[in-house]
């Protein structure tokens, strides 16, 4: 069973296992710090439940659930 980042709820944490996305998006996410093993925490959801705010490598980032769903956690 694979868990992806968009399935996390506020306050939950996880560690990145893999990114299953086309080259360009994968590179973008990895450049922003989502590399293997890095810890992520969901800080909050936007008023309408999407996008979500996460912390990664000590900073805050917002991304849509569609992008979060390509980040596989373990």
């Amino acid at each position: 069973m694979h868990m992806t980042m968009d399935e996390l709820t506020v306050g939950q944490t996880g560690a990145v296992k893999a990114i299953n996305a086309p080259k360009q998006l994968k590179r973008r996410l990895m450049d922003m710090g989502f590399t293997k093993g890095v810890g992520v925490e969901v800080v909050k959801m936007a008023p309408m439940g999407d996008p979500m705010e996460v912390t990664v490598r000590g900073y805050h980032l917002c991304l849509r659930k569609a992008e979060a769903s390509v980040i596989e956690l373990r």
Partner: peptide, 11 residues
């Protein structure tokens, strides 16, 4: 089509 929306939230 939809696209990526990745934005750093500054302090």
């Amino acid at each position: 089509e939809t696209n990526a929306f990745i934005l750093e939230l500054p302090r």
